[in-house]
Design a protein around this nucleic acid. Structure first.
Length: 901
RNA sequence: GGGCGGAUAGCUCAGUUGGUAGAGCGUCUGGUUUACACCCAGAUGGUCGGGGGUUCGAGUCCCUCUUCGCCCACCA
């Protein structure tokens, strides 16, 4: 007995800490360039430096690491590159907030000192999420950790920018951008959330300049009227077409502006007359261009009214709105105020309302780049799971607009465009230039930095060394798979695709893409179906889960959530002690409870096995009994399904299969049968070997999902000669090394069915486990009799009987089972009390009636001539068999009813 | 306004090429079987959102409606 090998209680914390340290020291997760060797590579989506692990990350990394470990165990050179993203706006907001507590603004420090503060902050707080990932067991190559602003990465970004600039794909343009007055920067269309909000629609009278009347315009943003430079009507609008060419006197500003005809105007909406503010509305800007209208900017970048706003200069935009409505009212120019529900753009980062604003920004011409991505997607070069996201991506690419890449921030990659103060020469350069190459004049670099996504778009190849020609780039690129949530499919995933194709000129056409596969995992929602949000208190800290349930349990639960189609709600239950004020106390998560229970089960089963193995035991398949052969066959089946499921990114199915195998097959049946077998000297050693073999394989099979517990136990088990020193670098069980034996499974099925039937009879008749009752099996088939006799000890032990009698009585009563379509009737020896007889009778009658109706329905189907004609023969035969079985059951029940009456 | 996804047992979800539905949790019954009560044995529980169609046969394919969620879209 080796009772001391595993402690009685599984303590995840101790085990996890121990193995993280060992694996780290041994550098099992470091990958080398080994030309010719099959490899598997992934880059993680770099979380923001400001980030902390949330449940979505946890799901994503559970998937990541499971796939990584699975591939590594298949002997591939396996690389997973971790890293973080500088996250321009988000990080700058944090540091500015920190400065504010000291009463400082970034302008007090100036650009250079401010950036020093940013770096300090990054060094201090930026590593949180990666530390959390290590604790999560992520077997990434920590020596290759990257940051989107480290030296090499900067070079990549500048090279990419310069390349596009020189190719004419980057230009400067003055147009309406999404301006965030709070973040003080332009943002791209993808960084604006549109949310329907309750607002008002004001109808304003604009008097005609010639005093001949008024024209009524509708607006949701009165403050913009100060910048109006026209009123537009539809040229086909009978009400207004005669006014085109006339002028109106813009109230409050006392400026004459023209009435123009423009087909954009929808005659049926509002009043049919639109006030045109070219500097503050994208549509108005276009009308303005068509009619060569001036575009005065009345709302400034700080969200306050500018000098152009006349008497309202200096007002906050919302104060101005109120003041203008009041002023218009005084002039009797407001005809109507209606409540109006409409989409308002808000900044993804800070949730403030976006102000459309005319300003000069840098843009990337997207058409040629989008075409790169469209070509490979349409050609099916990149597999998506689920594949509907291909079309989703294509639709976006086909309607793409140019990408505003300049941000008015300091934290980020400064745009490497230099302009000569003397001769005006402008150029982009990777190296910082100090003199004008044309006239030696003084140069000025752009102040703006690049959109964070411009740099993340280079991630898969930049982290492998691009633009340098590195062995890593040769060997690990393209990466094998990108695992992502669907929220960044446009922002990031597709941008990496066209970027790879645009920049990687050393690769063959087929190998320019950044990955062969995109796996889109579900979104985790809270128990109410809402998105997890920390600020709303609905978020769940994965670290809390790890503390409570253990990392393996958490990972197992998360993998079980990785379904193919739908988003998953994280079920939540409330334990005693829960209250509204502190909802995080006393809440429990059944998904992870299941994982924890499974871990405990694995622990205890292994503890039991280790107690029973001895020094002669080898992890070798040496089957002596039917049960031995059966569990080996079930192992083979499990190996195949788990590998298939992983191949198809169905981690949920894989976890279910592992769970069922380990718990329902290995523990519930095999271990129970192994107990008596290990007491029988003639087969004890064979059983021990088989048990060790199956357990050892099962642990390897589950290691990618539950790395810690599998390693801890595995280390205690006997291994085959030449085994690796860690389960992490052992071979993954593969289908070709195992054989499913269907005949054995069929035989075992009989034994199990008999035992289950006997247990059922016992339970129904109220026997406690301590009370013995002999089993009577009525069967006529010789083969079955032989099998039952061979497995008599299993049946007596698990069926809790002293002995088993096999008869060929045809009129026996009891529980029916069918084996190879032959009936067996199982019963136990026990006289029922009068009361029990009544209960039994009722039950028998009920079941008899149910069978009668089933038989009737099935016969009706069978008697339909079309069924016999058109259905496949085996289906017809199966249906006949069903009827036959039901009738036999019914006949026995009829006998029983008579006997009980 | 357009597109996509979901609606299956009380809850959270599976359901492979159409052959009368599964898991976990919950509920109920019985258990000190020396690995495990984070356990064991057994049971209960579903007209697969509504309607129509194709088919011998539909949770599964087609149409339609209801409803929830997500994405895209310039309606002042």
């Amino acid at each position: 007995m080796n009772e001391g090998l595993l402690p009685t209680i599984y303590d995840p914390k101790i085990v996890e800490e121990k193995w993280i340290a060992v694996w780290d020291e041994k550098k099992y997760s470091s990958a080398q360039v080994v030309p010719g060797k099959p490899r598997f590579s992934i880059t993680i989506p770099p979380p923001n430096v400001t980030g902390e692990l949330h449940i979505g990350h946890a799901l994503q990394h559970a998937i990541h690491d499971t796939l990584i470990r699975w591939q590594r165990m298949q002997g591939k050179e396996t690389l997973c590159v971790p890293g973080t993203d500088h996250a321009g706006i988000g990080t700058q907001i944090k540091v500015e907030a920190q400065l504010a507590t000291e009463g400082l603004t970034k302008h007090d420090l100036g650009r250079e000192l401010f950036l020093d503060r940013m770096w300090e902050w990054k060094e201090h707080y930026g590593g949180t999420i990666l530390r959390q990932l290590r604790r999560f067991g992520a077997s990434y190559d920590w020596d290759r950790e990257r940051f989107t602003m480290d030296a090499g990465y900067v070079k990549a970004v500048l090279t990419a920018f310069t390349h596009l600039y020189n190719k004419g794909l980057i230009y400067r343009g003055t147009r309406i951008v999404n301006w965030c007055p709070s973040c003080q920067t332009a943002i791209s269309d993808l960084e604006v959330d549109h949310e329907d909000k309750q607002g008002n629609m004001w109808h304003f009278k604009y008097p005609l300049a010639d005093g001949s009347g008024v024209i009524v315009v509708a607006t949701t943003r009165p403050e913009t009227m100060l910048g109006d430079t026209a009123v537009a009507v539809n040229p086909d609008d009978e009400r207004y077409k005669k006014l085109i060419g006339k002028k109106v006197m813009l109230p409050l500003m006392n400026r004459e502006i023209p009435i123009v005809g423009d087909a954009y105007v929808d005659m049926t909406f509002g009043t049919g007359a639109v006030k045109v503010t070219p500097a503050h509305d994208p549509n108005d800007a276009e009308i303005g261009m068509r009619h060569r209208l001036p575009a005065p900017i009345v709302i400034g970048k700080d969200g306050r009214m500018t000098e152009e706003a006349g008497e309202f200069a200096g007002f906050d935009r919302y104060d101005a709105r109120k003041a203008i409505v009041t002023a218009m009212n005084k002039l009797n120019l407001v005809t109507e105020i209606k409540e109006h529900f409409h989409a308002v753009g808000q900044c993804t980062r800070c949730k403030n309302t976006i102000e459309p604003l005319l300003s000069e920004q840098w843009y990337v011409k997207m058409e040629p780049l989008a075409k790169h991505a469209l070509d490979v997607l349409k050609a099916g070069k990149i597999a998506y799971h689920p594949d509907r996201f291909i079309k989703y991506t294509e639709d976006w690419l086909e309607n793409i607009r140019d990408w505003c890449i300049s941000r008015q921030l300091w934290w980020g990659h400064r745009i490497p465009v230099f302009t000569c103060v003397d001769c005006g020469h402008e150029f982009a350069s990777v190296e910082t230039a100090d003199k004008c190459p044309k006239c030696d004049g003084i140069l000025q670099q752009e102040d703006d930095v690049l959109d964070t996504w411009f740099s993340s778009a280079l991630w898969p190849f930049a982290v492998l060394g691009w633009p340098d020609k590195t062995p890593e780039l040769d060997y690990f690129y393209p990466t094998n798979i990108m695992i992502t949530g669907r929220d960044i499919l446009y922002l990031w995933i597709v941008r990496m695709i066209y970027s790879g194709i645009e920049y990687l000129d050393d690769k063959t056409e087929a190998d320019k893409i950044p990955y062969y596969t995109v796996y889109v995992h579900p979104t985790v929602q809270n128990f109410e179906g809402k998105r997890m949000s920390k600020s709303l208190g609905t978020g769940i800290d994965p670290m809390e889960l790890i503390d409570k349930y253990g990392t393996d349990a958490t990972r197992f639960g998360l993998c079980g959530m990785a379904t193919a189609t739908q988003d998953v709600r994280l079920q939540e239950t409330r334990e005693p002690g829960w209250n509204v004020a502190a909802p995080e106390i006393g809440r429990a998560f059944p998904t992870f409870v299941q994982g924890r229970n499974f871990a405990t089960k694995i622990w205890n089963a292994s503890r039991f096995a280790l107690m029973n193995l001895n020094e002669r035991t080898e992890a070798k398949a040496t089957p002596a009994t039917l049960a031995d052969r059966w569990i080996l066959s079930r192992l083979a089946d499990t190996v195949k399904s788990v590998n298939d499921d992983l191949d198809n990114y169905r981690l949920d199915q894989a976890t279910i299969r592992l769970y069922e195998f380990f718990w329902n097959e290995l523990c519930d049946w095999y271990l129970e049968l192994a107990k008596p077998a290990m007491r029988d000297e003639s087969i004890a050693d064979a059983t021990r070997n088989t048990l060790a073999f199956v357990l050892e394989n099962a642990l390897r099979l589950m290691h990618p999902f539950m790395p810690f517990i599998s390693e801890e136990i595995w280390q205690q088990l006997p291994h085959a000669a030449g085994a690796a020193e860690s389960i992490m670098i052992s071979a993954y069980p593969m289908p070709q090394d195992f054989t499913v034996d269907e005949a054995v499974e069929k035989e075992m099925q009989l034994v199990m069915d008999v035992i289950v039937a006997a247990r059922k009879m016992r339970a129904e008749q109220g026997l406690t486990p301590g009370q013995k009752a002999d089993i009577i099996i009525a069967v006529e088939n010789e083969q079955a009799v032989k099998l039952l006799n061979e497995n008599m000890s299993a049946i007596t032990t698990l069926g809790r009987a002293d002995k088993v009698a096999i008869t060929n009585t045809t009129d026996a009563s009891g529980e029916h089972i069918f084996w190879n379509e032959l009936p067996l009737i199982i019963n136990i020896t026990r006289e029922l009390t009068a009361e029990e007889k009544i209960k039994e009778l009722e039950k028998a009658k009920k079941e008899h009636a149910k069978l009668a109706s089933d038989i009737e329905k099935t016969e009706a189907r069978l008697n339909n001539p079309a069924f016999a004609e058109r259905a496949p023969a085996e289906v017809v035969a199966k249906t006949r068999g069903e009827i036959a079985e039901a009738k036999m059951r019914q006949a026995t029940l009829a006998d029983r009813i008579v006997a009980l009456s």
